[in-house]
Computed example of a mutant assay.
Amino acid sequence: MTLNETTTGTIAIAPTPFDGDGRVDQRSIDSMCDFYGKIGCTGITVLGIMGEAPKLDAQEAIDVAKQVIRRAQGLDIIVGVSAPGFAAMRTLARHAMDAGAAGVMIAPLPSLRTDEQILTYFRQAVEAVGPDIPWVLQDYPLTLSVQMTASTIRAIVQEHASCVMLKHEDWPGLEKISALRRYQREGSLRPLSILTGNGALFLDFEMERGADGAMTGYAFPEMLIDVVNLSRAGRRDDAHDLFDAHLPLIRYEQQQGVGLAVRKYVMAKRGIIAFDAQRKPASSLSATGRAEVDYLLTRLSRHDRRAMALDGIAGAAS
Rank of each mutant, 00 (worst) to 15 (best):
E292A: 08
I44N: 10
A317R: 14
L297T: 10
G312A: 10
Q184S: 11
V157T: 11
A61Y: 00
D244W: 11
I39Y: 03
L192H: 11
A307K: 09
R299P: 00
H160M: 08
L296I: 02
G103A: 13
R71K: 12
L47N: 06
G103Y: 05
Q124P: 00
A53V: 06
I225P: 05
M105L: 06
G213K: 00
R236S: 15
S162V: 00
A14N: 05
Y36P: 06
F35D: 11
R232S: 12
A214R: 00
A214Q: 02
V129T: 09
P191E: 09
M89I: 02
K38W: 00
A309D: 15
R306E: 08
D241V: 07
G22M: 03
S286P: 04
I194T: 02
L201N: 13
Q255L: 06
G289K: 01
T10R: 07
I29E: 06
G51V: 06
D237N: 15
P84T: 07
R154E: 08
D98H: 13
G259I: 00
G234I: 07
G43M: 02
A307Q: 07
G259T: 06
A214P: 03
A128W: 03
G213C: 05
L75D: 05
H168T: 03
T114P: 07
R270L: 01
I153F: 00
T7Q: 07
S82W: 01
I49T: 12
L242A: 09
R27A: 15
T10M: 14
G48L: 06
R70G: 13
T10Y: 10
A245N: 09
F35V: 02
R90L: 04
T143N: 12
V136N: 07
R123I: 04
G315M: 08
A211N: 07
N198G: 02
K38D: 15
P84R: 04
G187F: 01
R185W: 08
D76K: 14
Q73V: 07
L249A: 05
P248M: 07
P248L: 05
A277Y: 01
A179D: 10
I273W: 01
E222P: 03
G22Y: 01
A87D: 13
L242S: 07
S82G: 13
D244H: 12
L201Q: 14
G80C: 11
A211F: 02
L192I: 10
G173F: 02
E208A: 10
G51F: 01
R302I: 04
Q158K: 13
Q184F: 04
G80K: 03
G197P: 08
Y183F: 15
R306K: 13
F275I: 00
M267V: 03
A101T: 11
